[in-house]
Design a protein around this nucleic acid. Structure first.
Length: 491
RNA sequence: GGUUCCUUGGCCGAGUGGCUAGGCACCGGUCUGCAAAACCGUCUACGGCGGUUCGAAUCCGCCAGGAACCUCCA
């Protein structure tokens, strides 16, 4: 494949040229949500980041298998009810079956992702559907000598692993440090070292979600599902593993250890991590209770929100920052994003109406290659967007009659603009003349009203002209008077 | 306390040694019956101190402030 896509590999802390293991196939695994609550703005970041990667790699001609898991077992609650599965706990409080809770939130997650125009992954495996694979995986680690059983639970022997491998290579930690700084947790006494992590946990009596295993009735440790499902669907070695930066340690570090211990080789070639979304400078997250759900953004129903923000505004807002930098939430920033997106939408609509001339007097030729360059450089979407704004400026200038474009360049510009906006960035532009499904009869009616208004204006009948404008505005239309034409759109 | 990272104009946010992204806001102008929209223009920033260099937002050091991880987390 003739390109030079560079992606930042957390493992090397450098941008690296992407070379797939089995061209043209690419295996991509991304840590998905834990479905015991509604998705918040933070969840949108990895979903959109890796959606961009997924889309762009397909553009480059790769055949991508994108696996994004659903975590529905195994995460331990760190409170008074320690040991109880998060899903199980919520289920008991709600008097629902655990899988009912999972399905409920999963449906809502899918709805939110759909609204954000995030493409569904190729495979969306549930951890609960891969208990057998996880047990087999533990067995392999056992056979390799890196696991031990203690009172029905199984732990990974980090110290032993570290003698022959480097535990901490991804997160840049070393085991001695960890031994000093690891907190005492429940069940610590069962473990040989505080740094050891659970592969299998014996279920306590009140624990609802439990499965039989060679060691006890219980449930898998929370790092295991990704190792088991990733290798099941993408092979023992695959290209890219992604997720939020907060997962680097311990989750991804443990994944590396487990997979390397079980399979005797490194599984993942490129580790990619998106940065956090912050609110007042702090990470938006469950533990801090400072998150705003995506639905709340879409409806505006939250004390911190001044208004509702459309899914596309959220998507655009996230894409205006490079995925490895933090992005701080504020109403001001979101409103700026909303207006910027509107500007692009208008230019896009105008582009459809432009007519070719004999000469091109604007510089629109390089748009594709400039955006390509940005995307190839570790998915630099803000740069690509900046180029789109420059193109928008050219489009507006032509529309205003102050520049011209020839037929061939116009066709190319239309194609390229659409390609980048819709296919690469996944932004749905608001189509002109109201929403596309609204029907031509209704469009004709609005056009007629505006025609009458133009006549009224010609007769200096301002009362009639303003009445039409104001009533249409009250009904939700935006009327834009140009020099010698009128545009309208439905707000 | 340990590890890693960040600090850019009113706000957001690119940029890793010279060619001063982009968006939003503000202000001025064009257009308009008025308004909105649109267009054009203006505003030239890089936490502080020191160093390297012909030249630093960009490299090095120190200081200040902030964040993430070290416990479930996207």
């Amino acid at each position: 494949m003739e390109h030079k896509l560079h992606i930042y590999n957390t493992l090397s802390r450098k941008k690296e040229l992407f070379v797939p293991l089995h061209e043209p196939n690419v295996g991509l695994y991304v840590c998905g949500p834990t479905v015991y609550g509604d998705a918040h703005l933070g969840h949108a970041r990895p979903a959109i980041t890796f959606d961009i990667l997924f889309r762009y790699m397909k553009q480059l001609g790769y055949k991508v298998r994108y696996v994004r898991n659903i975590t529905d077992v195994g995460h331990l609650e760190n409170d008074a009810d320690s040991g109880e599965d998060k899903i199980a706990k919520k289920a008991r409080l709600d008097q629902l079956e655990p899988m009912e809770v999972v399905q409920f939130y999963l449906n809502r997650y899918h709805k939110a992702m759909d609204a954000l125009n995030v493409l569904p992954p190729s495979i969306e495996p549930h951890a609960s559907g891969h208990i057998i694979e996880q047990i087999e995986f533990i067995q392999k680690i056992f056979d390799a000598g890196f696991a031990y059983e203690s009172e029905g639970s199984v732990y990974f022997d980090v110290e032993k692993y570290n003698q022959s491998h480097h535990y901490g290579k991804l997160s840049g930690r070393n085991i001695d440090e960890l031994l000093e700084t690891t907190r005492d947790l429940d069940g610590q006494s069962e473990k040989r070292r505080s740094v050891d992590f659970a592969l299998w946990k014996k279920a306590s009596p009140e624990h609802i979600l439990r499965w039989p295993s060679p060691w006890s009735e219980g449930f898998p440790g929370w790092h295991l599902e990704c190792s088991a499902m990733g290798t099941k669907y993408l092979g023992e070695e695959f290209d890219i593993h992604g997720g939020g930066m907060d997962l680097i340690f311990p989750h991804h570090e443990c994944e590396i250890s487990q997979s390397t211990a079980a399979l005797g080789k490194e599984t993942v070639k490129y580790w990619m991590h998106n940065n956090m979304i912050t609110i007042n400078g702090q990470k938006m997250g469950k533990s801090l209770g400072n998150f705003i759900t995506l639905e709340e953004f879409f409806t505006g129903n939250h004390a911190l929100l001044e208004k509702a923000y459309s899914p596309m505004t959220i998507r655009f807002f996230i894409l205006q920052a490079q995925y490895r930098s933090t992005v701080d939430f504020s109403n001001e920033a979101l409103i700026a994003a909303e207006k910027g997106l509107q500007r692009l939408s208008e230019a896009y609509n105008r582009l459809q109406k432009l007519t070719g001339s004999t000469e091109t007097t604007v510089d629109v030729k390089g748009l594709l290659s400039r955006c390509e360059e940005a995307m190839l450089d570790d998915l630099n979407t803000p740069i690509a967007i900046a180029h789109l704004f420059e193109a928008a400026k050219s489009i507006n200038t032509i529309y205003d009659g102050k520049a011209t474009i020839n037929e061939a360049d116009l066709i190319e510009l239309k194609n390229v603009f659409k390609l980048i906006v819709e296919d690469w960035l996944g932004l749905e532009m608001e189509t002109a003349e109201g929403q596309s499904n609204s029907g031509s009869a209704y469009k004709a009616a609005v056009d007629l009203l505006l025609e009458i208004r133009q006549e009224a204006k010609a007769n200096k009948d301002w009362a009639t002209a303003d009445k039409i404008r104001n009533q249409l505005a009250a009904a939700g239309f935006e009327i834009k008077d140009g020099k010698d034409r009128v545009e309208w759109s439905l707000k």
